Computed example of a mutant assay.
Amino acid sequence: MYKWDIFERYQNSFSIIIMDIDDFKEVNDTYGHDCGDYILKQIAALLKKNIRKQDVVARWGGEEFLFLLPDTEIEGAFNLAKKLNRVINERVYKYKNNKIEISITMGISEYNKKIPFYECVIKADKAMYKGKKG
């Protein structure tokens, strides 16, 4: 049984964050895929370091990450998103004498007992893309 199945079964609250590294293709095109891999590893380490032990973060796609935040309402997820945004944006990423600036965009949703897990993911994904347009 996956964690989200447990959340749905026992009606626990949780929030979801989907995070995307902005302009990641440009990093790969400018500095190469080895640099892109380096950036992904650096960001993954920062994410793991800045979440709670019970939280789950996983690579969701090329440069996207998905967070499952148990027993977390939308306000707590928003506070974590602000913290992660600050931590990632303030860091200087150095690769082969190049300083690379990284920014991220996130979308958040809260599990609603009226909708299934996958719809929460879709809602967070749409919020992320809305943030990219804004």
Rank of each mutant, 00 (worst) to 15 (best):
E8A: 11
F7E: 08
K3R: 14
I39Y: 05
K133F: 02
G76K: 14
I88H: 12
I100N: 08
V56Y: 12
N50F: 07
T105Q: 13
Y2E: 14
L68C: 03
D22H: 03
D34E: 12
I43M: 04
R91M: 07
F7K: 07
V56P: 00
A124Y: 00
E90S: 13
F78V: 02
K113C: 06
K132M: 08
D55Q: 08
F65H: 02
F14M: 15
Y129Q: 13
I104Y: 12
K48L: 11
A44Q: 06
D34M: 10
E73Q: 13
M19S: 03
L47R: 04
A127M: 14
Y129C: 10
Y111I: 00
S15L: 06
S103T: 15
E110S: 14
V121M: 07
E110I: 00
Y31H: 11
K113Q: 12
P70Q: 10
L69F: 07
Y95L: 03
D125L: 11
L47I: 11
R52T: 09
K25A: 04
Y93N: 06
F14Q: 08
G61H: 08
A124E: 05
I16V: 15
V57C: 15
E8K: 14
M106I: 10
A58E: 03
Q54N: 11
Y95N: 06
F7W: 07
R59H: 02
F67V: 07
E64N: 06
D37M: 06
Y129L: 13
Y10T: 09
G61L: 04
F117W: 09
F65E: 00
K130G: 00
D55W: 02
R9T: 09
R52Q: 15
Y10A: 09
N98H: 14
E73Y: 10
F7G: 05
K99V: 02
D23A: 11
C35D: 05
Y93H: 05
G32T: 10
I104G: 04
I115A: 10
N112D: 15
K94C: 00
A77P: 12
